[in-house]
Amino acid sequence: MYCKANGGDFIKLRHLEYNGPPSSLPNFLIGVPSPLTCSDSSADPPDSTDRNGTDEKPPQETGDQKPPRESDEQKPKWVLTPEAFEKLLMRFSTDREEAGIQYEIARQKVIRFFEWNSVEFAAEYADEVLNRVARRIDEGQTIDNLVAYTLGVARVVLKEIRKHLDRRPIGLDDAPPDRLEQKVPEPIEPDARQICFDRCLENVPVGNRKLLLDYYQFEGGAKIKHRRELAAKMGIPLNALRIRVHRIRKTFENCIADCLKNSQPRND
């Protein structure tokens, strides 16, 4: 999960390697000095209504109100440096290992934030958010609550994305029935997913496997009753049972994802 970063020994360099939106981002971000490329001036402080005691400035939405000026285009783009990344890590924790863990947790939360707001390219936008936070720290801004600040920046970025999506001209012929259409999963050999499913299920410890398959028995009301009974049988509250099964399932699904990744031919 981790590798060297700026002389360190565990952090993934994924974030360091990021220098703006990838070519896979929507067209409105390509070739245009987007407010999402760190060239914005004051668009990224977090929410002033922050209930966690931060003293940062309120989120400003001025970054993308006007079309990009020529001077903006000429302004050199801020790029995350190893030093800035180090400072960001230090804000998570002075212990490097702990900092790496906290960084990854924060990143996962920001990714989910975008996914749960139906945003495509959630991981890329999450990196953009952390880039901006790193920039502010590098510039010496005081941040009392890093997590709340990160959420504030994520909200600003979300607003910017939506504003751009709303402004995007769509040809009548090209307009999809729904802009946020269902993403078709990567084409995978039909059997590959099933094979990985079976293989990973075999790897789940017997007790957990039995619980997993038992938990999802029945439908509708019978399912709820069955889960209550299962929880009672195990002598734990229903919520604890849900979380236990969720963890088993998460590990199981991660196994499938890894398996599918390994089973597909690499193009890079």
Binding site: E120, Q182, K183, E253, I256
Partner: peptide
């Protein structure tokens, strides 16, 4: 719910 499926991760979870 379908709107959430712009995420490849969620779409994959549905398949699983």
């Amino acid at each position: 719910f379908k709107k959430l499926l712009v995420s490849p991760r969620l779409a994959e979870r549905v398949e699983i």
